[in-house]
Simulated assay, not measured.
Amino acid sequence: MPKNKGKGGKNRRRGKNEGEEKRDLIFKEDGQEYAQVIRMLGNGRLEAQCFDGNKRLCHIRGKMRKKVWVAAGDVILVGLRDYQDEKADVILKYNPDEARSLKAYKEIPDTAKINEGALDEEDAEDNEDEGYSFADI
């Protein structure tokens, strides 16, 4: 029998040439709020700190699931619910360049850290000093 050497069928190859195209910056409207992801909860849900001061449980909409990967520290746009203030729906994920643009337009506060999920260069250097290296063994 022939061995499978690839990673999936033609459905996997279908989206190969889709690059990151430049899109227009989308601002919030009535019933929407900017937020930053605190932690991922699984099952398409996450906990986010909205920039209006509330912490909300957010649900990733079906159009974004398995297509747009959301991680802790990302800036997102959430749709607020009229009947549940403690819950919201994720509408859009901003990439870091768009989040910096929102900060420049004063849409989100200056205290928000854009790359909170990723380690900074200084943090990476501090972590190297704490542990063992291969030269010590």
Rank of each mutant, 00 (worst) to 15 (best):
N11I: 11
R12Y: 13
R13G: 15
K16L: 15
E18Y: 10
G19K: 11
G19H: 08
E20S: 03
K22I: 13
R23A: 00
D24S: 13
D24G: 11
L25N: 00
I26R: 08
E33F: 07
A35K: 01
I38L: 15
R39I: 14
R39N: 15
M40T: 12
L41N: 08
G42L: 00
G44M: 03
G44E: 05
E47P: 14
A48F: 03
C50S: 06
D52S: 07
G53T: 08
N54G: 09
K55M: 15
R56P: 02
H59N: 11
I60T: 08
I60R: 04
R61V: 05
K63R: 06
K63Q: 03
K66R: 14
W69I: 06
A71M: 09
A72D: 13
D74R: 07
V75G: 01
R81K: 13
Y83T: 15
Y83P: 04
D85M: 15
E86C: 12
K87W: 04
K87P: 03
A88Y: 06
A88G: 10
D89S: 08
D89G: 03
V90D: 01
V90Y: 00
I91C: 01
L92G: 01
K93M: 10
K93F: 07
Y94A: 02
N95D: 12
N95I: 14
N95S: 10
D97H: 13
D97G: 11
D97Y: 12
D97L: 11
A99D: 04
R100H: 12
S101T: 13
L102C: 05
K106S: 07
E107L: 05
E107C: 04
